[in-house]
């Protein structure tokens, strides 16, 4: 084992402290009794109570989850199709344009994507609301899904699909029986990424949302513009905890799955 030099230990310690201290402070001060957020006045959970009585926040949270669920699901279907076309589709008319349209939204500034979608919705006379936010989110997150899925598609052996076809599968059943199970982890992480991106998005949503539909980030943004409030600290703590628990669980589950696969493989070799 290599020994870490003091320089490396220091830079890791400072780096991680820099990444985590701000969030830690937010969490600690969400349990502060005082409304003055920067002065500690004792432990209290009252801001959580107030948060759960604030219907505007609850409604916004519901809208956000709904948008996230629908846009991530549609984006996963479309993104997986797009990935398959890019990796296995061969040549077709307008392929360059297609791959350009897949990669461009990844680097596009959010203000431009938001503005252009809003102008489209107005041009075709579509009322802005939950539906338009779902359309907007699906459009940019399908590109992320397709990047994640296509990196998995590139990595695995095409001959497995071909074997299935040779053995009498229809192309559709070869996809569902062979390809899909193999790329399932990538599809799932694509969905999770799309869902997180949707929950997180403020700029595009504020262009695409109508006056009647407010997502959680829009609501948070309009209240934190004025300053720091203990309710927002409480809300942030809840959101940070959910993400932390989700990511850590997901990584433990995949770790276990990999370990199990390795065991099975070894067992198969021994038995054989």
């Amino acid at each position: 084992m290599r020994r870490m030099s003091w320089f490396n230990v220091t830079s890791l310690t400072f780096g991680l402290a820099f990444l985590y201290l701000p969030m830690l402070l937010l969490i600690i001060y969400s349990f502060n009794e005082s409304r003055l957020v920067t002065v500690w006045a004792g432990f209290s959970t009252k801001w959580y109570g107030e948060l759960f009585q604030n219907e505007a926040f609850l409604d916004a949270a519901l809208v956000t989850l709904k948008v996230g669920f629908f846009s991530a699901t549609v984006a996963t279907v479309l993104g997986t199709m797009a990935a398959w076309i890019l990796v296995r589709g061969g040549k077709f008319f307008g392929r360059t344009l297609f791959s350009g349209m897949i990669y461009a939204p990844l680097v596009m500034p959010e203000v431009i994507t938001g503005l252009s979608l809003l102008l489209l919705f107005i041009a075709i006379g579509m009322d802005r609301g939950v539906m338009t936010i779902v359309l907007a989110h699906t459009t940019f997150s399908m590109c992320y899904v397709s990047v994640v899925v296509s990196s998995r598609l590139v990595a695995f052996d095409k001959s497995m699909e071909e074997a299935a076809l040779d053995l009498g599968c229809t192309p559709a059943s070869a996809f569902f029986l062979v390809t899909l199970p193999l790329i399932a982890p990538a599809v799932l992480s694509g969905w999770l990424l799309a869902f997180t991106l949707s929950l997180d998005d403020l700029v595009i949503a504020s262009f695409a949302a109508g006056p009647s539909s407010t997502t959680l980030p829009i609501k948070i943004f309009s209240s934190v513009r004025l300053g720091v409030t203990p309710e927002i600290n409480a809300l942030s703590t809840i959101m940070i905890s959910i993400v932390a628990i989700g990511v850590i669980t997901a990584s433990l589950v995949t770790k276990q799955a990999i370990a199990r696969a390795k065991r099975d493989e070894q067992k198969a070799i021994q038995d054989g």
Binding site: L16, P22, V243, V247
Partner: peptide, 23 residues
């Protein structure tokens, strides 16, 4: 994972956290 984890947390919240630190 420790480096990636903050990326999954809300961008808005991470920016907001600095308001309380820097004011």
């Amino acid at each position: 994972m420790l480096v990636i984890l903050p990326f999954w947390t809300s961008f808005l919240i991470r920016v907001y956290a600095w308001k309380g630190i820097l004011s």
